[in-house]
Design a protein around this nucleic acid. Structure first.
Lengths: 345, 345
DNA sequence: ACAAAAAATGTGCTCGAACACACAAAATTT
DNA sequence: AAATTTTGTGTGTTCGAGCACATTTTTTGT
């Protein structure tokens, strides 16, 4: 039943040559109606699936995929992505695919644009983007589209019909998850939502999380809580956050929308002995240290490694195995505390 | 630099024929010292990796992998495994591998033994076992070993040097995770550890979880808690658990070590209006319903789907790509509440 | 009716590894 | 020294899809 039919088998069954079968399968034309019908009859009965191994052995076309990633040297948040990409490289090394990573400075639009130029000059078949700079990305995507270069994105979403596939998380839901955990630790009091970021490039990201977080409290009508938003930059964390702590002596919980929870935890452990519930994002080393010390209660895992892996493998599998692009891949929102953290590295 | 060398390339470089290179690569002997040295010289300089696609295209050997699984009709816990196995089948359908699933009745040792006989009569290349019945499994594994059939296990561990690889979770740690969550919901009171199982086949499983759970409370010296263990069977849940509730009016938390949390939640929602913290295992439908109703606080996800998938793919990749067996694959202990549950299906 | 063009069909080579087999060159035996 | 075995080496085929090219059949034009 599940015997694997080959083109030769089909040819034999239909009483034609494999060349004709091949032409039908790829509708290359030059086939008489009679032959077409005979072959289609056979194809309707059996269940032909081309042998992908043979196909990829034959194909001489080398696919080029470029990944555009913020340099992890600037922000360790991106470090796991490198491993995810490496996983994909290892998995597909047998095939004729070249996967290349290019870094840009996440603080510099210019750097982003420059690296994109480099990529364009290499004319790859597809690009996986981290669209940190919204406006510039839209422009760049248009360029790629005109050149027939496929574009996928991960981590950040950018609305463009040219983007085939997006890998990321539901940020609104992730805010809700944080809220539900906060609601478990505390049953009343003031909660601060803190955004820490240098530029505004993560604005959408952070806002969505905040919306989700607030949405949970609104929906559950938890009126014993009061929520405050605070925006910080690296340069002013110490002063501004310390001042905030003094102004808000009743603060009992903090939700940090970026991977910088360790910065808050650090200031907090010096400033006060009071126990404040802390929930943040990402399993970067400094965060996990505070998690293990009990200074951070929960971290939400954004699984950048898998995001990057899936971003690449979606593209590669499209080329190699003609797989359809899923519109969106949403990764689970992993809840991490000190007890299960070690399993997620 | 990362040019892919073929056997032909090596032959040319060493000034011999591809046949000789092939004999060296597979040490089939019949090679003169002179030729051997020339080829080894080339191999030392370049970085030869055989093209797995070509190798698998040529090979006519069809690998047979059998999976031995408790029938999901008896316990929906096993349902996701079917999907995991299906994923593996889809992924490897291009290769010459046959993956077959055989079910047994988890309540019947006889059924287990009978299915094993069927499998042995098919003489597969490898078997993935769910070793529910410890004593019988050890015996069976010995048989497989003598027949040269590889054995991997998942879900349950069984100490045997013949088992190449095990996929599962660290149950002790998973008990600790449950404890840490319980400690977050409650800050004092009586906690019941409830084991629900028909036979004793899951005894080790449940005990390890209990040990981990207790270990957490011991280690953190949380003396405001008192822990009680209760063993139930399906037939006596209603009566015995109701009685337990009456005898223990101060009960504030329950940890259920199997996937049967819904049975406790069900009785609980009828017997009392008091809020009792409930933590259980597995995203089976009934559990998730109670999770969404707020009657179960957390579920720990044992990810049987991925367990089964990895169990199969480890075997297949060993045959197809000569991959080494990892001794143990421990899956992360996913913490699930009503907010993030939907992402794990 | 016959040549030329067009359409349809078949043949044969390629990809890289694996292995059977043929053949040659040494190493033994008689 | 000739016959035979052993050892070494190269050649050729296979796997299945894909595609170029050769060949056959049909159609069209004069």
């Amino acid at each position: 039943m599940d015997k694997k039919y080959t083109i030769k088998d089909i040819a034999q069954m239909a009483g034609v040559s494999k060349g004709t079968v091949d032409r039908v399968l790829h509708n290359r034309g030059k086939v008489s109606p009679a032959a077409l019908e005979k072959i289609n009859e056979v194809l309707n009965v059996i269940d032909y699936e081309p042998n992908l191994i043979a196909r990829n052995l034959k194909s001489t076309k080398i696919y080029r995929v470029c990944v555009l990633l913020p340099d992890p040297a600037f922000d360790p948040y991106w470090l796991p992505c490198v491993n995810g990409i490496q996983d994909a490289i290892t998995e597909f090394k047998a095939y004729s695919v070249i996967i290349e990573t290019h870094y840009f400075n996440p603080e510099s639009t210019k750097s982003f644009l420059k690296v994109n130029e480099t990529i364009i000059s290499q004319s790859p078949d597809a690009v996986l983007l981290t669209p940190l700079f919204h406006k510039e990305t839209v422009e760049i995507i248009k360029q790629y589209d005109e050149l027939g270069i496929m574009v996928n994105t991960f981590n950040n979403q950018v609305e463009s019909s040219s983007v085939k596939s997006f890998v990321g998380q539901d940020l609104h839901k992730s805010g809700r998850v944080a809220a539900s955990l906060m609601n478990l630790i505390l049953n009343k009091g003031q909660i601060a939502i803190i955004h820490i970021d240098e530029s505004l490039k993560n604005a959408v990201h952070m806002q969505e999380k905040e919306k989700g977080f607030r949405n949970y409290f609104d929906e559950k009508e938890l009126s014993d809580f009061s929520l405050t938003t605070l925006k910080l930059k690296y340069s002013n964390i110490e002063t501004k956050f310390t001042a905030f702590l003094e102004e808000n002596p009743d603060l009992s919980g903090i939700f940090i929308t970026t991977s910088k929870a360790y910065q808050i935890a650090s200031v907090l452990s010096l400033a006060t002995t009071k126990k404040i519930a802390l929930i943040g994002y990402d399993l970067i080393e400094k965060n996990v240290n505070f998690l293990n010390q009990g200074k951070v209660h929960f971290l939400i895992h954004q699984n950048q490694k898998r995001q990057a892996y899936l971003g690449v493998s979606t593209l590669v599998e499209h080329f190699l195995f003609r797989k359809e692009f899923p519109d969106t891949i949403l990764l689970p929102i992993d809840i991490i505390n000190s007890e299960n953290a070690s399993f997620y590295f």
